[in-house]
């Protein structure tokens, strides 16, 4: 009941913060996919880079999110606006599952299939476009799905540096020692994560079906 009461009062703010949250997650995921898929493809071509790139990504993952936000704060152009900084940090977190799954999906293409394709005279780009990416798409979307769920959760921390989002309610609730305020941020964030997971799961199943 207290939760309901809070929402009744601050419906507008809830909508604003949810919008900010979606914006942070959406832009970060867009960047993570735009960077991560090509990085994964590059790794499948230059396997020597694999240890370096996946290693660097792994290290980023081990930095606690709050610390990463704090560490990036003094960086000149970034620190000027909290949302820039939050988007960069979230993108870095989302990158690993996208890169790793893109690489794994391409590496997982059956060797005779790849050999036949190369032997038939497909160029490297044709191999990628007609064979590797379609066959890896299911694994790639699975990586995007994992990354999105993580990002929805980590994005609540962005409020700590003033980048907004549903974390505002959580941090305010912590300060006020008021669970209902914490829940007003946590419950919508959890629902967003669930919704994104369902939506991407649906896309994944469609891909499996069209690829048989």
């Amino acid at each position: 009941m207290p939760l309901f009461a809070f929402i009744a009062i601050d419906k507008r703010q809830l909508l604003t913060l949810t919008g900010e949250h979606l914006w942070l997650v959406g832009i970060s995921m867009f960047l993570a996919v735009a960077l991560g898929v090509p990085m994964g493809i590059l790794l499948s071509r230059r396997r020597g880079l694999r240890a370096v790139v996946l290693g660097a990504n792994n290290i980023v993952q081990t930095i606690p999110s709050l610390a990463l936000f704090g560490l990036l704060l003094p960086v000149p152009w970034l620190g000027a606006r909290a949302d820039r900084l939050a988007i960069l940090a979230l993108t870095l977190y989302a990158l690993l599952p996208v890169v790793r799954n893109t690489y794994a999906g391409i590496a997982g293409v059956d060797p005779p299939v790849r050999e036949a394709a190369v032997g038939m005279g497909l160029t490297p780009w044709q191999l990628l476009w007609h064979v590797e990416l379609p066959l890896a798409s299911n694994v790639i979307v699975a990586g995007i799905r994992t990354a999105t769920v993580i990002t929805v959760g980590v994005a609540t921390i962005a409020a700590a540096i003033g980048a907004g989002g549903l974390g505002e309610f959580i941090f305010r609730g912590l300060a006020m020692v008021d669970n209902s305020v914490i829940l007003a941020g946590a419950v919508p964030a959890a629902l967003l994560a669930l919704g994104a997971d369902l939506l991407l799961g649906l896309i994944q199943r469609t891909l499996v079906r069209t690829h048989h």
């Binding site: 005779p112 299939v113 038939m120």
Partner: peptide, 17 residues
């Protein structure tokens, strides 16, 4: 060169999609 030459292998290597 490769398109000048047909290539057929064991297990066929057909594209499953």
């Amino acid at each position: 060169l490769r398109r000048h030459i047909g290539y057929s292998i064991q297990e066929a290597g057909l594209f499953p999609h």
